[in-house]
Lab assay of single mutants.
Amino acid sequence: MEVRTIKVFTTVDNINLHTQVVDMSMTYGQQFGPTYLDGADVTKIKPHNSHEGKTFYVLPNDDTLRVEAFEYYHTTDPSFLGRYMSALNHTKKWKYPQVNGLTSIKWADNNCYLATALLTLQQIELKFNPPALQDAYYRARAGEAANFCALILAYCNKTVGELGDVRETMSYLFQHANLDSCKRVLNVVCKTCGQQQTTLKGVEAVMYMGTLSYEQFKKGVQIPCTCGKQATKYLVQQESPFVMMSAPPAQYELKHGTFTCASEYTGNYQCGHYKHITSKETLYCIDGALLTKSSEYKGPITDVFYKENSYTTTIK
């Protein structure tokens, strides 16, 4: 009895394709271990004539594949690729409408935090270190965002349907971005203890939790000093293409032309909904596939993004 075979390709990165001759009487799992086709788990399936010449994702289970996976995804987590594939199996079914010149995501599976993050990423200057993220990001900007969303979920250790947080998501993504040249110098002034300067680099240099107003941050924000008295913390120097200011959701007025974009969060910790506000020729609110415009805006804002380049204080 002759062994019926077909020729397929296996890959971990969709760049390096490895030619395989597979036995049609055995499952993919018996031949390769966990195997995925377009995100779908085909591990328990036997090869079919229609699979001839198709590319299958496999887990990096030998040295060659491990090197290829690390170079593309910059992670050695053995569960990463499987999590990416199972997320992709959902995100490829989502709709990605162009809204006001940006790629958004039609609401499904509690994905409003991903839509808000995706919209924000198209408006701030950011370059990702893992080629996987950078490639998928370019495709997302062009309207094909399924891979990018699935990668975000995998890097953030999230599953489809789980509630997510924009600030946490951005923080994970910033860790995989090139923020080497970003720098922030802060000064804390206390009447009792004097003053202390701190220099922050990388992710810490672009994120701040405690106030939404970048102007206020430049002037000074009140913080408790270690001595128990009130101290003032203010920005001395900022070198970065953008800054992200966050605070627990509270009524906040966004003035046209003073910011790049913002995240609105309605609801409580267990259950809520994100919308995205962007400042173009007027203010726009993007909620999944829905767009509304207004000249002014007041609502429960939790993150505001500002364009920056270089700032030095005039406070002496």
Rank of each mutant, 00 (worst) to 15 (best):
Gly101Arg: 05
Met207Asn: 03
Thr75Asn: 14
Asp135Asn: 12
Asn268Lys: 07
Pro300Ser: 11
Val160Ile: 08
Met244Leu: 06
Val206Lys: 01
Phe148Arg: 02
Leu59His: 15
Ile301Ser: 00
Ile277Met: 02
Glu239Tyr: 09
Thr226Phe: 09
Gln31Arg: 13
Leu133Pro: 02
Ala250Asp: 09
Asp23Tyr: 11
Pro224His: 11
Lys255Glu: 15
Thr258Asn: 12
Gln98Thr: 14
Trp107Val: 02
Glu215Thr: 09
Ala231His: 03
Ala87Ile: 07
Leu235Ala: 02
Glu162Gln: 11
Lys275Cys: 10
Glu125Val: 04
Val185Tyr: 03
Lys275Val: 14
Val188Met: 10
Lys293Arg: 10
Leu235Asp: 00
Glu52Met: 11
Ile315His: 15
Tyr208Asp: 05
Thr313Gly: 10
Pro300Arg: 14
Ala87His: 02
Gln195Asp: 15
Ser25Ala: 15
Thr278Tyr: 13
His74Pro: 06
Thr75His: 08
Arg184Leu: 02
Gln122Arg: 02
Met26Asn: 12
Gln30Ile: 12
Gln31Val: 14
Tyr208Pro: 00
His276Leu: 08
Ser295Ala: 14
Tyr311Leu: 10
Met24Asp: 15
Gly228Val: 02
Leu200Met: 09
Asp77Leu: 05
Pro249Trp: 02
Ala142Trp: 14
Val304Asn: 00
Tyr137Asp: 03
Ile315Ala: 15
Glu296Lys: 10
Gln134Ile: 11
Asp63Gln: 13
Ser50Val: 13
Ala146Met: 06
Ala108Gly: 05
Asn129Glu: 15
Asp109Tyr: 03
Leu133Lys: 05
Pro34Lys: 12
Tyr28Asp: 05
Gly272Lys: 00
Val206Ile: 08
Tyr234Gln: 08
Tyr138Glu: 15
Cys156Arg: 05
Glu281Ala: 05
Tyr36Thr: 05
Gln20Ile: 09
Val42Trp: 12
His18Tyr: 07
Asp180Ala: 13
Val99Cys: 11
Asp180Glu: 12
Cys190Trp: 02
Lys316Gln: 15
Leu59Thr: 12
Arg184Pro: 03
Thr19Gln: 10
Glu52Gly: 14
Leu59Ile: 13
Ala142Pro: 03
Gln270Asn: 15
Thr75Tyr: 06
Thr5Asn: 11
Tyr113Val: 05
Thr278Cys: 15
Gln20Phe: 07
Thr159Val: 09
Gln123Lys: 04
Lys218Gly: 02
Tyr208Gly: 09
Thr198Phe: 13
Ile152Lys: 04
Leu290Met: 14
Glu308Ala: 07
Gln175Ala: 11
Pro241Trp: 00
Cys112Arg: 04
Cys190Arg: 03
Gly164Ala: 05
Asn100Thr: 09
Ala69Trp: 07
Tyr297Glu: 03
Tyr36Arg: 05
Tyr138Val: 15
Lys95Phe: 12
Phe217Val: 14
Ser294Trp: 10
Met26Thr: 06
His256Ala: 13
Phe80Tyr: 04
Cys285Ala: 15
Glu162Met: 08
